[in-house]
Computed example of a mutant assay.
Amino acid sequence: MRVLMIGDIVGRPGRKALLDNLQALRKELKLDFVIANGENAAAGHGITKEIAKQLFATGVDVFTMGNHVWNKKEIIPYIEKEKRIIRPANYPPGTPGVGYSIFETQLGYKLAVINISGRIFMQELDCPFRKIDEILLEIQDKVNIIFVDFHAEATSEKVAMGWYLDGRVTAICGTHTHVQTADERILPEGSAYITDIGMTGPRDSVIGVCTNAVIEKFISQMPRRFEVADGDYQLNAVVIDLNPENGVAKNIQRVFNLE
């Protein structure tokens, strides 16, 4: 079984990367399921119902989110109904939407997708380690193929989560920092891991933002309006091969496509 996890989709260039490439990638790589982080898909902040529907049509099966999940307020009623958009599970009880869902592939295998948020240099949410323990306990008799999007800033927190979940999930893949790391591996107990999948968005940018505005802010220390950059795009992702009978990962490979 083969699953593609796509790094943070940023603005129009990120959406175009999927529109131009995802259908072909599904065929070329013989993908069974596609997970994409969509928290920056709408002008770099959040996602809308219209954009979600457009990208579902390209071949995305489920969106994970992150700290920008609520930036487009109109997503709230949609996320209550659309279980294919998953917000971080460690938001407080009563928050709209779901933190994980279980899906069925075309071949009939059940697969869980969990979204969790880090806390170092991020918004203070419930403990991600304790929260994911609760979720794994809830689903232990339902599914053994489990993908985790850990949306976090600190490398140390992501690495710690990888070791914490090794052998308990199929894959732990980091998002949020928009720079693809070169540490993909299968951990000793059989879980696929990468610290950050990277960004699907404008290549010539500062993590998706127009370069001049970011440079000016660093130099002047004054507020600047950040906008998504234009130009050529990149598509960052990982392909994970696994044994569908036991959920153990067999291989993880980075994808870095340029326009």
Rank of each mutant, 00 (worst) to 15 (best):
R254C: 06
P128G: 06
G190N: 10
D133V: 14
V239M: 00
L111V: 14
T95N: 08
V98G: 00
G46P: 04
V98S: 08
Q180P: 09
F56Y: 15
R26P: 02
M199Y: 08
P96T: 13
N257L: 15
M65K: 08
Y164R: 04
I6Q: 04
V69G: 00
K53F: 13
A41G: 08
V228G: 00
G94D: 05
D183W: 15
N37S: 03
P93T: 11
C210F: 07
M5C: 10
A17F: 08
M222D: 09
E82W: 00
A160W: 00
H68M: 03
V238A: 03
G208N: 07
Q106V: 07
Q123N: 12
K142N: 08
V255L: 14
M199D: 05
D141W: 05
I79V: 15
F150W: 01
M161K: 04
K217T: 12
G97L: 06
N243F: 02
H178W: 06
D230G: 13
P223L: 07
L4W: 01
A42M: 05
E134P: 00
I135K: 04
E216L: 14
D61A: 06
I145Q: 01
P93F: 08
S156V: 14
D183H: 14
T200H: 05
I132L: 01
R185Y: 11
I186L: 06
L25I: 15
K158G: 06
Q23K: 15
G208Q: 11
V143K: 09
D204A: 05
H151Q: 05
Q123C: 00
L18N: 07
F103S: 03
V179G: 03
N115M: 04
E50P: 00
T195Y: 15
S101P: 08
S101E: 15
D61T: 12
L242W: 05
T95E: 11
